[in-house]
Amino acid sequence: MTDTTAEPANPLLTLDGVTAGYGAGLILKGVDLTVAAGRVTCLIGPNGSGKSTTLKTISGLLKPNSGTVTFRGEDISRLSARERLLRGIVHVPQDRSLFPAMTVRENVEMGGYVLRDRRLIAERWEHIAASFPLVADRAGAHAGSLSGGEQKTVEIARTLMLDPVLILLDEPSIGLDPKSRVAVFRSVADLAAAGRSVLLVEQNARSGLAVSHTGVVLEGGRVALTGTGADLLSDPEVGRLYLGAAARPAPPSASSLPSPAGDRTRQD
C-alpha cells in the first residue's frame, strides 16, 4: 500500500523508474524521485543502497539503463555530463577535487572553466568571496595548505562560479572532524537560505536531515520513504535504522527552514 501526498506543481528534477548500474549489475532498480526548486533534499540509506549512483545518474557521469531523468521539463537522460553542466547541474564528488598547488582563488575560478567572459568570472568571484569569508581570507593560499573542512567549503563555493540551478553534494562531511563538519553543514544551510536547490547525499544522516527540507530513504536501489527532514528525524524507525540512536526532536536548524513541498510518503 502506498500513501500519496501532494508534489510540487513544477518540480525542478524528476527521476521516473530509473535503473542504472555498472557492467551487468544494477544498483538503481526503479528510482522515483522528485526534487523541488529552492529546497535542500537529503538522500540517506545504508551503504550500497544507490545514493552516490543516483547523483552520478543525474549529473551524467552514468547513463540510466531505463527510466527518465527530467530537469526543468526536459528529458536529459541521454545528454552528456557537459551538456547537463551547461544546463546548471553541478556535481561535487566525495573525493577532494581541488588542485593543491593552485591558490584558493584559482581553484574557485576553475569552476567557471566553461565560461569565456573574464568580466563575468571576476564578478562571480567577488560574489563568492563576499558569501564565503574563508574564500576571501585565504584567496592567495595554496589549496593544499587548507584543512579538509576548509577544502570542502572551497569546493562548495566553487560551484557558484557557474550560478548553478541544482547542486549535487556527495558525502560532503566524510572524513572530517566534528568542527569541520559543522562548518560544511553551515555552508549547505547558507545555500538553502540563498534559495539554492541542493540534492545532498550524506552518511551522517542526522546532520544531513537537519539542514534539509525533504529527506529520502533509499533501500535496495529504490525509494522506501520520503518526508520532511524534521519528520524523518523524529521517526522512531528512521532513528533506529539510520540515526544510530533513538530518534530525537528535530533541531532548530531543520525546523527553521521554509516549509517543504510535501509530507511523509511511505513506499512499500
Rank of each mutant, 00 (worst) to 15 (best):
T2N: 14
D3H: 07
E7W: 10
P8E: 02
N10I: 08
D16P: 09
G21R: 00
I27H: 01
I27S: 03
K29T: 02
D32C: 13
V40S: 04
I44M: 05
P46S: 14
N47C: 06
S49M: 02
G50L: 13
K51A: 07
T57H: 08
S66E: 15
T70M: 08
R72F: 12
L79S: 10
R84P: 00
V90R: 11
P93I: 07
Q94L: 09
Q94W: 12
D95Y: 06
L98E: 06
A101N: 07
M102F: 10
T103W: 06
V104M: 03
V108Q: 05
G111N: 09
R118M: 10
R119G: 14
E123Q: 14
E126K: 14
P133I: 00
R138K: 14
A139P: 09
G140H: 12
G148L: 08
G149H: 03
A157H: 08
L160V: 00
L168S: 08
D170Q: 07
E171V: 00
K179D: 05
K179N: 10
R181I: 15
A183W: 04
V184F: 01
A192K: 09
G195W: 02
Q203K: 04
N204Q: 11
N204K: 06
A205N: 05
L209Y: 05
T214I: 12
E219L: 13
G221L: 07
T226K: 13
T226R: 15
G229C: 03
L232R: 09
P236C: 09
E237F: 05
R240T: 04
R240Q: 12
A246H: 13
A254R: 10
S255A: 08
